[in-house]
Amino acid sequence: MIEGSTAKLALLIDADNAQPAIIEALLAEVVKYGTAHVKRAYGDWTGTRLQGWKGQLLAQSIQPVQQFAYTSGKNATDAAMIIDAMDLLYTGRFDGFCLVSSDSDFTRLAARLRESGLRVYGFGESKTPKPFVAACDKFIYTENLTRPLGRSAEGDAVVAAPRALPAPLMAEDALITQLQRAVEAASDEDGWALLSTVGHILTSQHPDFDSRNYGHAKLSDLIAATSVFALDRRQSDDGKSAVVHVRDLRP
């Protein structure tokens, strides 16, 4: 599976279920995983409810897909988005999909896309049902995208914490257990693990894991804040970049 900037992605937005204020931050996040060759937003554009989206569609070159609300209480937009997703899947042109919605109706779609070997990135509010979150390879809460960045004393970007946490984080916290298990799974005989591998394991086990959920912009910052791990920055094998290793400080 191709990852990164070379991955070809289809970005499908449930405009009935997402806020237009997130779009710029959303597109900036999508770039981390690949290039959106298709950008579509679904909804009933004949009404006034989606008025806030219309300026964003033009500014961000997002194609609006019209779906009339034929019956009150029935979400025809979901069906249209699912049908389009399957049509795009069968073209064989894409490496992954970005599904923007907090609606559990897309759970089976996410699972079906993954069954075909494509990566699925979900974007939704923290209220998103867990089955949809778990069906994605990675799920990003949109609250993390719009939360303002601050600056630490060292000048590094930090994220305002979405919820109160002890400082430093205590070892009995469920977060610490997740981190320790991931480090242990990725560690070598000396107990050191490559931080990028730890991050991959965490996301594989918990698709909605995100250091921004805990008020830190990077995984390395979050791990350092726990005070139960050692971090070691080393030169890569080619000597051109730095890589971070982590080790559990428990005896």
Rank of each mutant, 00 (worst) to 15 (best):
86 M>Q: 07
7 A>G: 02
147 R>F: 02
131 P>D: 13
70 Y>C: 10
117 G>T: 00
5 S>L: 02
228 V>A: 10
154 E>R: 05
46 T>W: 05
208 D>Y: 09
112 R>H: 14
40 R>L: 05
97 F>A: 10
165 L>H: 06
70 Y>P: 02
96 G>E: 01
120 V>N: 03
5 S>Q: 11
46 T>F: 14
80 A>N: 08
14 D>K: 09
114 R>L: 09
186 A>N: 01
31 V>H: 12
120 V>C: 02
108 R>V: 07
158 V>E: 12
102 S>E: 07
147 R>D: 04
170 M>Q: 15
183 V>S: 09
10 A>Q: 04
230 A>D: 14
96 G>T: 01
54 K>S: 12
97 F>G: 04
2 I>Q: 14
2 I>S: 15
209 F>H: 03
175 L>F: 08
124 G>Y: 00
34 G>I: 03
127 K>G: 00
105 D>R: 00
224 A>S: 15
211 S>F: 04
229 F>W: 14
118 L>V: 02
167 A>W: 07
241 S>P: 13
58 L>T: 12
16 D>T: 10
68 F>T: 09
21 A>M: 06
129 P>T: 06
1 M>W: 05
11 L>H: 10
150 G>M: 07
67 Q>S: 05
36 A>P: 08
240 K>C: 05
129 P>S: 12
64 P>Q: 08
6 T>F: 09
38 V>G: 09
167 A>I: 08
55 G>V: 01
185 A>K: 14
79 A>H: 08
71 T>N: 14
217 A>I: 01
35 T>N: 10
31 V>Q: 13
225 A>M: 11
20 P>V: 01
154 E>M: 06
180 Q>Y: 04
206 H>I: 04
250 R>E: 09
135 A>Y: 00
86 M>C: 11
251 P>G: 00
161 A>D: 13
14 D>H: 07
185 A>N: 05
190 D>K: 14
153 A>G: 08
41 A>N: 04
46 T>H: 15
169 L>R: 15
103 D>V: 05
66 Q>G: 11
99 L>F: 05
249 L>F: 13
190 D>T: 15
215 G>A: 05
162 P>W: 00
67 Q>V: 06
21 A>T: 09
56 Q>C: 10
113 L>V: 07
178 Q>E: 11
189 E>N: 13
188 D>E: 11
19 Q>I: 02
247 R>A: 13
199 G>F: 08
171 A>W: 08
